[in-house]
């Protein structure tokens, strides 16, 4: 499968502050790829670099084999870009903005746009500035679908949206992506919405990559165990087995990619009673919090 996006040894600083170092990932054609991380971990910075709106300190980003720093108009036409907050030209009406963009994109299909607009209780002459955040998100999505891009980059599509509009957004996106075999690169801070949507995920923390794998593999291999510790002062440490942990009173929770026997052997070496070890099922959001921590 062709790599639509390739990020190689990407390092970026804002002044003296390191955002990430030697960041590597790739997105295969037709995959839905989620970049997940807490606020301030560099998700929007990555997207800005990918779209050529920021020059990285070092490293390289390729989109359709072209350096993102100097994308050709032909490549830009293949990329649909949703800016964080569903930013669009708010001084335009629904009809005007469709007319404007249609002139730029050779594969423009207005039908999906107007189909989506028909679901909103607005007239075609209504200005975007007079619409709710949820309605504006549908306009932004409709414009991207009408553009018919090969790659959709969606920066925090969920920002400011209530549950209904988030669902509507994803339902449309899933239907479109599957039917047209599109590649999607998405970031969001509402992880549970993406549980049945993503193919691959990259979970980042401040300055480092925590997970890079298919989402199903992550959900299958990343586990949460709870057990009793000898006393509340007992301390664990992060290592190859324990990726993260919490201790509350005499109960510990650990997150691990290791199989149960390996974990139990390790806990045994710490004089912890294995009989209290209990696996607790996790949602994607639980797993995300488990790997990134609550703070």
């Amino acid at each position: 499968m062709e790599n639509v996006v390739e990020v190689k040894n990407l390092t970026h600083y804002y002044g003296n502050k390191l955002v990430f170092e030697n960041f590597n990932f790739e997105i295969k054609s037709g995959r839905i790829f989620g970049l997940l991380g807490k606020n301030g971990t560099g998700k929007t910075t990555t997207i800005n670099i990918l779209n050529g709106f920021l020059k990285p300190t070092s490293g390289q980003c390729l989109m359709f084999g072209e350096d993102s720093y100097k994308l050709s108009p032909e490549t830009k036409a293949r990329v649909g870009f949703l800016i964080e907050g569903h930013i669009q030209y708010s001084f335009m009406s629904i009809k005007q903005i469709e007319k404007f963009y249609s002139a730029f994109y050779p594969k423009w299909k207005k039908e999906p746009y107007y189909e989506l607009m028909a679901k909103l209780e607005v007239t075609q002459d209504q200005k975007l500035s007079k619409m709710s955040c949820g309605q504006r998100s549908q306009v932004a999505l409709g414009l991207i679908l009408a553009q018919d891009p090969d790659l959709l980059i969606l920066d925090d599509y969920s920002m400011g949206l209530d549950a209904g509009y988030r669902r509507l957004f994803l339902d449309y996106l899933i239907e479109y992506a599957k039917a047209e075999a599109k590649t999607i690169f998405i970031t969001s801070h509402i992880i549970q919405d993406l549980e049945n949507f993503l193919d691959d995920c990259l979970i980042i923390d401040y300055r480092s990559v925590l997970v890079a794998m298919p989402i199903k593999e992550f959900q299958k291999t990343f586990k949460q165990y709870k057990f009793h510790v000898p006393n509340p002062e007992f301390r664990l440490s992060k290592n190859n087995i324990i990726k993260n942990y919490e201790i509350l009173k005499d109960k510990a929770t650990v997150y691990t990619f290791s199989e149960r026997p390996e974990l139990e052997a390790y806990l045994n070496s710490l004089s912890i009673n294995n009989s209290t070890v209990e696996e607790v099922p996790m949602t994607l959001e639980d797993a995300f919090i488990g790997i990134t921590g609550k703070y």
Partner: peptide, 12 residues
């Protein structure tokens, strides 16, 4: 809100 990004992302 950095709307200029929309213009600069146009294929031209």
């Amino acid at each position: 809100l950095s709307r200029l990004k929309l213009t600069l992302h146009l294929p031209a």
